[in-house]
Design a protein around this nucleic acid. Structure first.
Ligand SMILES: [Mn+2]
Ligand SMILES: [Mn+2]
Ligand SMILES: [Zn+2]
Ligand SMILES: [Zn+2]
Lengths: 131, 131
DNA sequence: TTCAAATTTGTAATGATTACAAATTTATAA
DNA sequence: TTATAAATTTGTAATCATTACAAATTTGAA
């Protein structure tokens, strides 16, 4: 599907910056930080501001276009794949890969007194290149 | 068990600050931030420095006395309960409660190419007081 | 074209964490 | 005990990702 159309479906006006930022995320699928997005795009968009990337990620987040991944304590990361899945981060190289389960994400023991809206599953260790 | 003995078992010299900090964590079981620990203890330890709390948490972390909980993107939280369990954070009041599963923490689909050393399971939503 | 709204930008402020060296306390040797 | 070294604690400054904010630019309707 077209990125501009996808943004419109989420009630976001598809400005050039927004299209390029979402395009970067969908193409790279690398769970990037703001710095990674900015550093890549500024080469072809010299007037791009880092604040715009921050603003856009906040907009995408509130509109459900991306999900926040806080597997890294230093920098926020974002994922344009909003399907429920977990993440693994290599302690050595920092690479982040998706984790899938047999069936939906496992739920904790019955907590009828909690209204769970979101689940994050993070694993850490060494990836195949680093172990 | 005695807190000083517990620290010695983890090769940590049980100084007064360290005992009081771990005592706070074990008594409150509230997954505190550095600020919460400092703010509570400084009332009875007027010379306590926030840097000491930071240093001590780093020492506890490296010695396996506490686990890091990064369910909150703003501040790091710590847990003296090092058994494998998940956490829930209320989006409204910020309270953090433990989550347990039937059996061990669920594992993702076979990733023979990953060496998983640590798993974090975070859920967010509304607690019984706030929903 | 004109004008208001939306978007983007640059700079300053924020705030948790870290770096670091001085001060204090604790342990060891003489 | 006293002298000395090591460990711990402390206070202050630096770091750095993120946020606040107002000015500049762009967009789109009238
Ligand atoms: Mn993902
Ligand atoms: Mn816990
Ligand atoms: Zn790796
Ligand atoms: Zn609550």
């Amino acid at each position: 599907m077209d990125i501009a159309t996808y943004l419109k479906e989420h009630n976001i006006k598809p400005s050039y910056s927004r299209i390029r930022i979402l395009d970067y995320m969908m193409t790279h699928k690398n769970h990037p930080t703001v710095d990674m997005i900015y550093g890549n795009l500024v080469k072809e968009m010299p007037t791009l501001s880092k604040t715009t990337v921050y603003n856009t990620m906040e907009l995408f987040l509130n509109s459900g276009v991306v999900k926040l991944i806080s597997i890294d304590e230093k920098e926020k990361r974002y994922d344009a794949d909003i399907s429920t899945h977990g993440h693994f981060r290599c302690d050595n190289c920092g690479r982040i890969v998706d984790l899938y389960f047999d069936g939906p994400l496992p739920m904790p023991k019955a907590h009828e007194d909690l209204e769970i809206r979101e689940i994050q599953y993070y694993a850490k260790g060494l990836c195949k290149h680093c172990k």
